[in-house]
Amino acid sequence: MARCRVLTLPGWQGSGPGHWQSRWEALYPAQVERLEQDDWWWPRRGDWMARLDETVRDAAAHDPGRPVLLAAHSLGCLLVARWAAWAGRHAPVAGALLVAPPDLARDDRPPQLAPWADVARQRLPFPAVLVASEDDPWCVPSRAHALAADWGARRVSAGAAGHLNADSALGDWPAGWALLRTLAPGAVPI
């Protein structure tokens, strides 16, 4: 795992200092970095995809022996799915941890997220683990199950933990880090 590069992909509005993604970035600065977007409040799917594609491909080109892992939260999960559907089997990613994907087919979604409602449902071209909470206000368990099945991801329940963000009081979330480690090349699944 130490030789992997981990990109965190925050969701809508980004991830604040108490979020597990931000904490991982602080804990493992040589290994984990945030994929920054130009606009966290009015996310343009095409712009977000272009930034992800550029970052992943640059990482693969400049350090081809260092596998890239994605650690996505919320809207970041939908970004991974859309980008992977576009990139196909040529996506230079070793695996993805997909945490708390939102259900944007709901009528109560924020208007700035409407363009994201058309969720890519193709099987991901790399291994993935989808972690969902049983009481996530943005996605009911049945929808999370369906996304995991469509994407070919192993589904892990986080119990009743809300949207698995800073409000969920996960701290450094070692259980999430352990799941991410299972996606590193050569890792033994837990």
Rank of each mutant, 00 (worst) to 15 (best):
H62P: 01
D53V: 06
D103H: 06
W24K: 09
P127V: 02
P92R: 06
L130P: 07
P92D: 05
Q112G: 03
R5M: 14
G176W: 01
R89V: 07
R89I: 00
P17K: 07
A60W: 02
P185D: 10
V68L: 05
W116L: 01
A94I: 03
H90K: 14
P102L: 10
G176E: 12
D103Y: 06
D103T: 01
A60L: 03
Y28P: 00
L183M: 05
D136G: 08
E25L: 05
W42N: 14
W42Q: 13
A72Q: 04
L113I: 07
V56I: 13
R106C: 10
D58N: 12
D58M: 10
N165A: 09
P111A: 10
D135R: 04
P115Q: 00
A149F: 07
T8M: 13
P10L: 10
L79M: 13
L113Y: 09
A175S: 13
V80C: 01
P141I: 08
A158C: 05
D150A: 15
T182I: 02
W86A: 15
R154Y: 06
M1S: 13
D167E: 14
C77I: 12
L27Q: 14
V6T: 07
P174S: 05
Q37L: 13
A85Y: 00
H145V: 12
Y28R: 15
L79W: 07
H73L: 10
E54N: 12
A85W: 03
T8F: 11
R109H: 09
V6K: 11
C4D: 09
V188K: 05
D53E: 15
